[in-house]
Design a protein around this nucleic acid. Structure first.
Lengths: 199, 199
DNA sequence: ATACCTTATGGTACTCAGTACCAGTAACTT
DNA sequence: AAGTTACTGGTACTGAGTACCATAAGGTAT
């Protein structure tokens, strides 16, 4: 059986903690909420909170794994050994959309997430590491699809640049963000001239 | 007068804290050292420590400002309005070397810094934000030198990619790192073919 | 069902990071 | 010399994060 009773309980507890935390953060802000309050609202012990999340900040980034999964699912899909940088970029482009799509699954929470990160400097560092993790995953996928190391890393970082500029231009709305990032990709291609990356 | 007594005292206190902290970190590791111990060794009050550094991790990244200064000094140097991506990259390349050069000013401490970050997960996030800050500064410099927004951001992120792959290949030694990053730049140019970025 | 093992829970008690507040002192100002 | 400003370090507090342990509940045998 795939989901044992324990498994289901674990999932429920985890979700309860996440929901309790985001509810409290939404009304009182991140720093004003204590772990004890989150635990009480989620009806678990304080100790249990730290079993599910290494620290208080980590709850905010609970969705990171979903985004990584979305990317890593592309490993091995449609392999193209020795692909060019242009080809790698044209694969990275929809992959970025796929990551953004995770945000649209619960747009309300995602907007809140963006607000929390923007308002609390103590979350900035962790948010940056999340982008590193996604960039690394992107590079790994491209490598698995047949890109050379340098090509994969380079394309992943160009995708990161597009994502960052996209988020800068668009608001926190995930759908708008996806479009803006995509536009940035288009601009990159136009920037170097058609086919410039394909040499 | 450029350096008042207060100014000099401040500098000395700051340096004393940094030195005390790194000495203790070197022998006992980051997490085993308490702020109180650092303050005692630096002969300042515990309260004073937090006046100079927002938190314990921040001491580890005390040199970040030097690297940023190194970059920002290039703002406005040799302006070239409307520069191409290839031109932006050829400017980013020596700029990365300049940043690495800061590490060679005190190679011993830099190696220790790298070791501390590598060994302590609690420092990973902050280290990532440092790279963001440097990348942003790089983009700002290129923009100030006349690059379009997209060109500047893109070139800065490509430089980031070169830096990351360089550090991955070279050890923690700053000189070797500079060379490896430079080699990555060369590889990027070769990757897209000569002149591919200049369209 | 019974007994047994394993895993998850939540409570207690502790350390230490980080903050608020305040009184004392040293540096600049006139 | 007197007054103002900037810096210090001490006290006292909150809250994050950890170690430990007794208890309960899920899983697994017989």
């Amino acid at each position: 059986m795939p989901t044992s009773i324990r498994e289901r309980k674990r999932r429920r507890a985890r979700e309860a903690i996440i929901k309790a935390a985001f509810d409290l953060f939404a009304t009182h802000g991140f720093s004003a909420v204590t772990v004890t309050e989150i635990a009480e609202r989620a009806e678990v012990g304080r100790t249990t909170f730290f079993r599910y999340f290494g620290d208080k900040r980590e709850v905010v980034f609970a969705d990171e794994q979903h985004m990584l999964d979305e990317l890593l699912a592309l490993e091995g899909v449609d392999p193209l050994p020795g692909m060019t940088l242009a080809q790698a970029l044209s694969r990275a482009r929809p992959a970025v959309r796929a990551v953004c799509a995770v945000g649209t699954r619960d747009a309300g929470r995602y907007v809140l997430y963006e607000r929390l990160v923007a308002d609390n400097p103590e979350l900035h560092d962790r948010a940056e590491r999340k982008l590193l993790a996604l960039t690394d995953a992107m590079a790994r996928v491209l490598r698995a699809q047949g890109a050379a190391d340098a090509t994969a890393v380079l394309a992943a970082h160009i995708a990161l640049a597009c994502f960052r500029t996209g988020r800068l231009l668009a608001g926190p709305d995930p759908a708008a963000l996806a479009d803006a990032a995509d536009a940035a990709f288009a601009e990159v291609e136009a920037l170097a001239g058609a086919g410039a990356f394909s040499r």
